[in-house]
Write a protein that binds this DNA or RNA. Structure first.
Length: 509
RNA sequence: GGCGGUGUAGCUCAGUUGGUCAGAGCAUGCGGCUCAUAUCCGCAGUGUCCGGGGUUCAAGUCCCUGCACCGCCA
């Protein structure tokens, strides 16, 4: 009833594009965190969705001879289907074209306007249509758009402005008193130095196209896409619609984003919220980019990785695992065939999978498939339990700080001590000698595997369940509570442990 | 041009406040076990810790400077 609440979001993805590895990365990260918080007994609201307004969508639709709405309805399934395939456990999905969202955006726009933080003015600068951005003379590269190198147009339009400049000091104070507001630290520094330079008022409406949410007091204007898009984080948990639900989850615990959209989230968004007297989110975490086989991913190079293909080739959990095992979350990384095969064979098949395999086989062979209450313990066994506890603690500490890479490292440290424990205790010898310590050793290994499966669960939910099945646990791992599972215990509530096929098969070739 | 970051074994990188800090993983070589997905365990390396100067009893670890690469901003 009074469960702790956790609210996590991904960006809403622009439907102009089909989903690629970058979209998958952010969304899987959010899913990992959401699943982790759930086994930590939180009630989690996990929101993702699609951004469906803007000039690019309008133009793409007209090119195809359909309405923007039809285009959106078609493209949104690219995301919905992929999230299903990747086992994304989101509890909310928002499309900016929904009626509930239109209401919220217009309500907020009006309220901020009435407060005096939005005013009507005129904007003139160089405008790049494909990028939907204005640039100053200085920003242009040889007179071309600095992002896409196309020729921008000189545009002058009547526009509503948000008094961002009035928020420079307040935002700086907020940053100063919330050192972990923007993560990782390097991103915090970038934002801070940007804000220190002073903020300029921000144009928050457009008249150059139609496909968007109308400015409530002036139908000729469409609300700026970012003002529209960012507001999804409020709409998605019931702002205006279900105040109780909204209040119980806000402030949002974390907005997970790619580093390219940092400024919108770390500067504009908190200021919009301040203007509304709504608390800013607790954290904004900006992650890095993936290159493909050492090269920047781009449509022109034709090396855009389709997540569907990876999943079909390597498996969902293998893919999810790789992304967070290979590179510290927050930094850039490289996706290559060699790297993922190396991780699957080295980490999953050899170290982890083989550990499961040898343990299960020994329980089956030496103990007739039954885990037994330990009869005899010594210092080595006690030490094994203490070590396990230590790694679980490290894991939790890392996970709470978005340190997925470190958390996985703790898992593999634990795998390593388990493999060494088998070697030093040599259960086959205990069995041969009829030593009753055998039950203790196998009991410890069983406990280790059971806990490992829980620790890996946020990353590899299906494989974790398979491991629980393999070691005879009848309940489902996604209902587990880490607090209950992190301790060693004995139970008779397990089914017979029998020979299994490898959970992580090696990839040959 | 301004601000910030990075440069450590063949590769990818860890290295809190200066004193077992010269490390881990992968790759390589040798040895061991046999429960296991020929998996696992143990051992062995190699390094001008980017260059130069300085502070200190003591510096990858602090200061100055040069070079290279990267990010944010103008």
């Amino acid at each position: 009833m009074n469960k702790k609440k956790y609210y996590i979001t991904t960006p809403i993805y622009y439907i102009n594009d089909v989903p690629h590895i970058g979209h998958a990365y952010t969304t899987i990260a959010a899913d990992i965190m959401a699943r982790y918080k759930r086994i930590c007994d939180y009630e989690v609201f996990f929101l993702t969705g699609t951004d469906e307004h803007g000039q690019k969508v309008e133009q793409a639709a007209s090119k195809q001879g359909i309405t923007p709405r039809e285009l959106a309805d078609r493209m949104v399934y690219g995301f919905i289907d992929l999230w299903k395939k990747l086992n994304i456990s989101n509890t909310g999905f928002i499309r900016t074209t929904e009626e509930r969202h239109r209401k919220v955006v217009q309500y907020i726009f009006k309220k901020v306007f009435e407060k005096g933080d939005i005013y009507l003015g005129e904007y003139e600068d160089w405008y790049c249509i494909p990028c939907e951005s204005y640039f100053t003379e200085f920003q242009l590269k040889d007179g071309k758009c600095p992002d896409c190198l196309r020729t921008p147009d000189r545009l002058k339009e009547e526009s509503y402005f948000f008094r961002l400049s009035d928020y420079t000091e307040r935002l700086l104070e907020y940053l100063e008193s919330h050192k972990d507001f923007i993560m990782p630290e390097i991103r915090y520094n970038e934002v801070t130095s940007f804000v220190r330079g002073g903020l300029r008022d921000l144009s928050v409406s457009r008249t150059s196209f139609q496909w968007g949410i109308k400015v409530p007091m002036n139908e000729r204007h469409v609300v700026y896409v970012w003002f529209d898009a960012l507001t999804n984080y409020l709409t998605g948990i019931g702002y205006l619609e279900d105040d109780e639900h909204f209040q119980s989850f806000w402030p949002c615990d974390v907005h997970l984003i790619g580093k390219d959209i940092l400024r919108f989230h770390a500067v504009y968004w908190p200021c919009f919220l301040m203007s509304m007297d709504i608390e800013p989110p607790r954290h904004i975490f900006a992650h890095g980019w993936w290159t493909i086989e050492g090269q920047k991913m781009s449509k022109s190079l034709g090396n855009v990785v389709d997540p569907h293909e990876i999943v079909e080739t390597y498996g969902v959990d293998e893919f999810r695992f790789f992304l967070f095992r290979e590179v510290p979350f927050g930094l850039d990384g490289d996706f290559s065939k060699n790297a993922i095969v190396g991780r699957i064979n080295g980490d999953l098949a050899n170290d982890f999978g083989n550990l499961v395999s040898r343990t299960v086989t020994m329980v089956n062979k030496f103990l007739k498939g039954k885990i037994e209450r330990p009869k005899k313990k010594n210092g080595i066994d006690e030490n094994f339990e203490i070590e396990t506890k230590k790694y679980v603690d490290e894991y939790k500490k890392s996970m709470d700080a978005f340190g997925f890479y470190k958390a996985l490292q703790s898992c593999f440290d634990m795998i390593s001590i388990m493999n060494r424990y088998i070697d030093s205790e040599a259960p086959w010898r205990l069995h041969r000698d009829g030593d009753e310590r055998l039950s203790t050793v196998m009991y410890n290994l069983w406990n280790g595997l059971r806990i490992l499966a829980v620790l890996f669960y946020p990353f590899m939910p299906e494989k974790s369940q398979k491991i629980w099945d393999a070691i005879g646990i009848k309940s489902s791992v996604d209902k587990a509570s880490l607090e209950d599972e992190e301790n060693f215990y004995y139970t008779e509530e397990i089914s017979e442990i029998t020979k299994i096929a490898p959970i992580f098969p090696r990839i040959e070739g």
